[in-house]
Amino acid sequence: MTSRTIYGTQKTMELICPAGTPSALRAAVEAGSDAVYCGFRNETNARNFPGLNFDDEELREGVAYAHSRAAKVLVALNTFARAGNFGIWQRAAEQAVSAGADALIVADLGLIDWARKAFPEQRIHLSVQAAAATVPAIRFYVEHFGVRRVVLPRVLTVDEIAAIAADGACEIEVFAFGGLCVMAEGRCLLSSYATGESPNMNGVCSPAAHVAYAQEGTDLAARLNGFTIDRYPDGQPAAYPTLCKGRFSCGGKTMHVFEEPTSLNTIEILPALQRAGVSALKIEGRQRGKAYPDSDGARLPRGVGCFAFGAANAIAGAVSIYRR
């Protein structure tokens, strides 16, 4: 049973699903997501990925659709504004508010300040891209800009999350499933070094324009701007070339130098996250392809990637159990 809650008084964890496209938004809402997050098809969106995202009209239609089914739409304006070109970010905020967005997910201090003054009633969430991970940092955003929720980095432990939540400055949102980024999100110097681009401003840490696959003999080589990130012999599953999860030759050995290619999956610690005071669970993956809701009434968000099907289904099911 779903219990829709009002922001600020909720007792259960909200499930927030990615919507890379309007059809993913509709599918996530149909599958029972409490909220979806999405962004514009421009540089105001940290997932400005080829072929994804919304224009103004699509956002209006998406918000209307979600609201007609009691779901919320959170709009990510989570890049850092370029010097001398703040107008793009202002217009995006105006369009999102005008479309009826339930919250703006923002990282840039200037944009937060401007949006707070321009739209005093608008709910503002602090994006993970702002990298606020301590009580003083979060208090700063809450006290000065009225931020209502913070999205925490995904490398924190449950105890660290609980300590932040115990301060009670604002609602706490955490990632429940997706890639496990070990860097300060959006500021990966490794990615910037390899691609010459900002992970915050150019879509992702491995921009598709820099990705190339090449069949070389029996190996498939996955490269990022000419750097070989991994090689996959025939028959071995391949992967998207993410720098920190690559296999490199180092000290005479070929290995995962930075981290194992492990994904984040909180299914087993959901009760602990709820006890820790988490308000909302975010499933990562606006750039993933659509998966499909099942016909058994399980609350599967369709907007998540096929690879995430099982875990997302389980997380969604677990969240719904806590609401009973």
Partner: peptide, 28 residues
Amino acid sequence: DGDALFFTRDLMIEGDTAAVLALRNAIE
């Protein structure tokens, strides 16, 4: 799902990866 097919090597792509992803997303 195009990602899944590619990762299991049932689909092959060459060339402009960004263009392929854009096409995939537009079709989807």
